[in-house]
Amino acid sequence: MSPAPIRAAFAQAFREAWAGGAGVLLPASFFAGAAMLVPFAVGSDSDQLAAIGGGVLWVALALASLVTMERLFQADLEDGALDLWVQADVPMSAIAAAKVAAHWLVSGLPLALLSPLLGLMLQMEPDRLPPAMLAYGIGGLAFFLWGAFGAALSATVRRGGLLIALIALPFYVPTAIFGAMSLQAEVPMPLIETLFLSAATLFSMAVAPFGIAAALRLATD
């Protein structure tokens, strides 16, 4: 098995996500906008904001990860590129993983990098921001993998955005739980919670690409 098709799939998905700039800006503005509304909605009391800030960002991250998901595989299905990828000489799961990785790099990583700024705005303690950023990065990857699974399953459905959310959100729960626990612990970056958070992401990395591949085969059938 040659890695060339996987690299090509990554390159194509990266360019696709980057084209027009919406791949970066849309989720990032959604993430920032959702976080920004919170002080207006719950009041600007510092202690209250500090208590809920980390959790609010998890919710905002989960929703922002779904914003650009709908076109991820649907575009490939409609323009015929998916037929060509299904026929490439590598397992579809590897192609799927490469596509999700490229998509996460463009749309997901910027969200984690943006989180310290939003955390500051929500009165999180400054020394907690870097470990929180790492947690958002790890958890965000799981969100993108499960979101992509939902996107693959609903690729044949017109306006399937709602369906993606319905499919993906239950899979987000473990990451949300362990992610929130890692922020609420006594010390920044607690070992056990971070390990559980990472385990949830590793599980999604191990399972989601195969689920996506199976769903895409059904979509082309």
Binding site: A19, G20, D79, G80, A81, D83, Q87
Partner: peptide
């Protein structure tokens, strides 16, 4: 081995 050429061209809009 087979080449498949469907009625959809498989090009991305920016490609």
């Amino acid at each position: 081995e087979v080449h498949w050429l469907g009625h959809r061209d498989g090009l991305k809009p920016h490609e």
